[in-house]
Design a protein around this nucleic acid. Structure first.
Lengths: 342, 342
DNA sequence: CTTGACATCCGAAACGTTTCGGGTTAGATT
DNA sequence: AATCTAACCCGAAACGTTTCGGATGTCAAG
């Protein structure tokens, strides 16, 4: 269908070699010849065949990313759409495209990674939402393929790769201390699934906050959720059924916090005055929730952009000033955390 | 780096041809041989080189999509992240990946299309947010490359391509009639930018609604916005500055409606009782806005999925039962449209 | 003993590009 | 007249795969 170098060569009377060299700006072709070739190329609507280029081992100008699929519950993608937008915008400025595969974690997911990496379709990969003993990281390291990660490994695991993460241990400590300062003594916690790498960090931060406020850690104030709104709803129900005297609940992401608010309101209680709620992420919906959600801000969009810059530096063989970045979290106080208790 | 067919051929003692045929399931290779070859392939971690395959003209198993970039304002991507998720999930089920390029509309954007289409990187393209005299559609038709579109052409332009759209003219008529029924007589309208294909449909729907309710169309009750929250804010300010007696404002998408609510609340007025507000799209934030937003529901996620099915049918040469789908919009009444006026 | 059929295998060409290692010409220098 | 240089150009190989069109060997039927 499309015109090839050969077509241009025939039409212009030069060889394929010369056409190729003219088009890619070598200086051993006459300027007049080059102009002629370029005009023929344009008249034929020539566009280079990328697979052919890649076959020669040239850059694919493409960044790969595998994102978790989860059908209906697209709003769970809030985090990923922000990350994706950051990655996409930064990539575009570097004339890179994105190859995206949405996959449910598991065998198919690893196959998607293999297709991209060994299949030679991308120059580098962006990973997100690290898990414990993450097989994706092991694979990419073993392949020696350039990659960067949003989120470091779980505590105790090696972190021998480039990443950007927010210190969520500090985040949860700050949140917990803040609630204690408001006067709360019984604070529930809804954690992410156990296999997520940052779960332990947040769990630890919560414990640190309690210790700092002189409160004892109560294992049954803590439940696990699924990072979705529904998980927050169920988690809050469970906590309030067993411990109706809780005066505050921290959910480990904003989506679960929104679910928590629904559960509280469904019981005829007021979010804030009756039960304080706090989340983590500061997704756009947090600001517009009712009441607006107190949360820990993560600059997800910026992280996406910086990941691209790191990745391309690695791909180009430049060395990175910083290859492991830990950002400090920021507390954003809104109405959901309620007034100071008296 | 990665193992090739040649490596497997050498290690197994068969020819490259036989290895290739064994691996791709031809039946003229001995079952025992095949097993042997497969085990060698696995031991070498073989993964086919996709560019090489594509060079031979085989399917790329990839769907292309160019989405508008707009830096900071990622929340504007609400519509696109839902569409993207729908497209991604459906594609994944068909073992397709997505090639995404984020681009600001203009020359660079067309270049991204050319790279994907003529560069042979995708089997088909998904377009969204049709514009007037859309050069992308003209290009894809001229190239004869498979594509499907979310949103038909502007009124009066030909619609000779497969699309899925929501009848937004009906949507705006319904919305307008609903507000009139509530007792509103002075209803402002914030339209999308003029070059968006659906702008005239929505404008017409508004006029139809007014006519049906026996109200006269007032050109100065209508302003144009930019589809972002900020555009809704500015549009509402302009409307209320010049026409403080407006009792209702329709914004042509939810994001602008949220901006409109901020503007109203910033003036010390109550959204609903003082000024009714309605939007269009039913993005997740609409439900959690305060007050919750009355709006027209578009099943964006499902549209994304159906677009993929249509596109793949075209790519595979199957014929489509329906290639131009117009969905009926659904009114979702929430608090922002306020009570019946007395 | 021929013939044909079948099962199994393979050589070589092709896809479109880039690039190495030249070649040819014209003019300038010896 | 021979040599050198610079400017311009090109043939052929290579990337990894698929596939067309056979080739070879075995065995049963004629």
């Amino acid at each position: 269908m499309g015109a090839t170098l050969k077509d241009i060569a025939e039409k212009s009377g030069y060889s394929v070699t010369t056409v190729s060299r003219a088009l890619s700006g070598y200086d051993d072709v006459n300027e007049q010849t080059r102009q002629h070739i370029i005009s023929v190329a344009n008249s034929l609507g020539y566009e280079p065949n990328l697979p052919a280029r890649h076959l020669r081992g040239l850059s694919t100008q493409t960044i790969g990313m595998v994102i978790p699929a989860n059908d209906q519950t697209f709003s769970a993608h809030d985090f990923f759409s922000q990350l994706l937008t950051g990655v996409g915008d930064a990539a575009s400025r570097e004339r890179y495209d994105l190859l995206i595969s949405t996959q449910i974690p598991g065998e198919e997911e690893m196959a998607a990674y293999r297709r991209m990496v060994r299949g030679n379709r991308v120059d580098g990969m962006v990973l997100a939402r690290t898990r414990q003993h993450d097989p994706r990281i092991a694979y990419l390291q073993e392949q020696g393929h350039p990659f960067v990660v949003s989120g470091r490994s779980a505590p105790g695991e090696p972190n021998d790769y480039p990443f950007i993460d927010v210190d969520s241990q500090a985040g949860l400590r700050i949140l917990t201390e803040f609630l204690i300062e408001l006067g709360h003594r019984r604070i529930g916690l809804i954690l992410p699934p156990e296999d997520i790498a940052y779960t332990d960090y947040r769990h630890n931060g919560y414990r640190e906050g309690l210790a700092h406020g002189g409160l004892e850690y109560q294992a049954d104030y803590v439940v696990y959720g699924d990072l979705l709104r529904s998980g927050g709803y169920r988690g809050a129900q469970r906590l309030l059924d067993t411990h109706p005297l809780l005066t505050a609940i921290i959910a480990c992401n904003d989506l679960m916090a929104l679910g928590t608010m629904s559960a509280i309101q469904g019981r005829g209680l007021q979010v804030g005055p009756d039960v304080a709620v706090a989340g983590f992420d500061d997704i756009p919906a947090a600001e517009y929730a009712h009441p607006a959600l107190t949360t820990i801000q993560q600059p997800i969009y910026e992280i996406g952009q910086r990941l691209v810059h790191m990745l391309l530096a690695i791909v180009r063989g430049e060395d990175l000033p910083e290859s492991q970045i830990l950002l400090q979290p920021k507390l954003v106080v809104r109405a959901s955390s309620g007034p100071k208790l008296t």
